[in-house]
Write a protein that binds this DNA or RNA. Structure first.
Lengths: 196, 196
DNA sequence: CCTACCGATCGGTAGG
DNA sequence: CCTACCGATCGGTAGG
């Protein structure tokens, strides 16, 4: 009757989340079915529900994992005593590396969040808005310090975050350029776009 | 028995496509239902099928309308006798304005194309690849002519195209900045990011 | 353009 | 973790 929370039980859930992220990325949240996911995991569809509450719970976990990771990094960077440009570069690199190393999760969190249900949906939207605002504040600080040219900071944030999500196309095309080279190219273009 | 192709019949189809683009944008292709679309158009679901063949046909039309428009503009710009930077700026502005003026269609074509079925899916992928290649060639030309700094051209294309799709967040947040200001900011940041 | 309806598939539950 | 199954919803068709 009572389910026992063993170690293998916990890691089973992690496997499900991981496979779910890959599946949601490939097909989109709505088009991905729990039966497909079960197949990939290697169980019957009904068995998934011993580990998770619902399909939407999977999306919640994926989205908030990612959001919390970025929020935590931003806390860290804001506290540093360096130039504004250096802070922005650091955050950009974190985003690029996140996209390269946790591709499925980040991709899903970026493109499928609209399928969250409340209160998670509005929570995430609020969190994202706050994140972008603080990112923009970093740019505005740079403008005041004359490190960065006079541009509209929210626009710059929007450009940078979406440019990074473009790594998706790169991933898909499996280009000859390496991840590190890609990162350097992106940083060069974007940071020089800001610099005074 | 035989359906008559009247003028109002044709424009009815256009209305359906327009409303479909808005609905697909809002909910995503898979999550949007034909019953919802019918409601918006003001008919019963079955009646939609007098104007269109299937839900997927709607997506086909939306995606190829957009793709063909951009391809045509690229033809035009390639033929011009100006600097590479001027060509790229012109193309960027066309993309930005396209995003501002035909938001629903462009958004859907950008984010929902993976739900196309073959042969449309692979046709569009091929077309998009060709487009990005020719866009990259414009940048490489600029590098050879010493107008543009030495960067990886495909990476720059990827950044720019995705940065523009970021106008989505701007649209959603209904910011105080005007469309024209947004365009100027984006062009400033991105063109200066390329310039030598 | 509508009524009536179909077969398929979905997320999820009961019960063991 | 499985078998068996449910109610809901989907895209689409028949026939008028």
């Amino acid at each position: 009757m009572g389910r026992i929370k063993t170690e293998s039980n916990a890691s089973r859930k992690e496997v499900i989340i991981e496979k779910a992220a890959a599946l949601f990325k490939e097909k989109g949240f709505k088009a991905a079915s729990m039966r497909e996911l079960a197949d990939i995991v290697g169980v019957e569809a009904a068995s998934l529900y011993n580990h998770i509450k619902s399909k939407n719970e999977l999306l919640n976990i994926i989205c908030f994992d990612v959001a919390n990771r970025y929020m935590h990094k931003l806390d860290e960077i804001e506290a540093e005593k360096t130039t504004s440009i250096a802070k922005i570069e650091k955050l950009l690199r974190y985003h690029i590396e996140g996209m390269l190393n946790h591709f499925d999760e980040v991709y899903v969190s970026d493109r499928e969040w609209k399928h969250l249900d409340n209160p998670y949906l509005s929570n995430l939207q609020t969190q994202r808005r706050a994140y972008r605002k603080r990112f923009a504040a970093l740019i505005e600080e740079g403008i005041r310090r004359k490190e960065i040219k006079k541009i509209d900071a929210p626009t710059a944030v929007l450009i940078m975050l979406h440019a990074i999500s473009g790594i998706e196309s790169w991933h898909r095309s499996k280009q000859k350029i390496s991840g590190k080279e890609l990162e350097e190219n992106m940083v060069t273009i974007m940071i020089d776009g800001l610099r005074k």
